Computed example of a mutant assay.
Amino acid sequence: MTTTYGQFCPVAMASEVLTERWTPLVVRELLCGSTRFNDLRRGVPLMSPALLSKRLKTLERVGVVDHVGSEYHLTEAGRELWPVIESMGIWGQRWARGDVIAKHFDASLLMWDIHRNVDTAALPDRRVVVHFHLRGSSDGKSHFWLVLEPSAVDLCLTDPGHDVDVEVAGHVETMIDYWMGRRDLLGAVKAGDLAIAGPRLLVRELPTWFTRSPFAPVPLPVGA
Rank of each mutant, 00 (worst) to 15 (best):
G192Y: 11
G43M: 01
G192D: 11
L110G: 09
G140F: 11
L81G: 04
L202R: 05
V44R: 02
G187W: 10
Y178A: 03
D99F: 14
L148C: 08
S138Y: 03
T35Q: 13
P150D: 09
H67L: 05
V27E: 07
V130L: 06
Q7D: 10
E86Q: 12
F132L: 12
A216S: 13
E80T: 03
T35F: 01
T75Y: 07
D159V: 01
E60T: 12
A121V: 07
Y72H: 15
R200K: 13
V130C: 08
R94N: 07
H143Q: 14
V168Y: 05
Q93Y: 02
M180E: 15
H131M: 10
F210M: 10
F144S: 06
W179C: 04
V147L: 10
D193A: 14
D125R: 13
V65R: 02
T158E: 15
A224D: 14
D163K: 12
A152S: 10
M13S: 11
P83T: 06
S151T: 14
Q93H: 14
V203M: 06
D193N: 15
R97Y: 15
H171T: 02
P214C: 03
R212G: 03
Y5I: 01
V164P: 05
P214D: 09
K54T: 11
V168Q: 05
V44I: 15
V130T: 11
G78F: 04
R21K: 12
I101E: 13
M47V: 04
S213I: 04
F132V: 02
L109I: 06
M88H: 09
V128N: 05
L31A: 05
L220H: 13
T4R: 14
P214N: 02
V17Q: 12
D125Q: 14
V128E: 07
E20C: 00
H171Q: 13
L81H: 08
F144L: 03
Q93G: 09
K57P: 00
P24V: 05
T211D: 12
D99Q: 13
L56W: 06
L59M: 08
V11A: 13
V100N: 12
L185T: 06
P124V: 08
V164C: 06
A122V: 01
G43W: 03
A152R: 14
R200M: 09
V44T: 15
L46E: 14
L59F: 02
P221S: 13
R55K: 10
K141R: 15
S48P: 02
V64G: 01
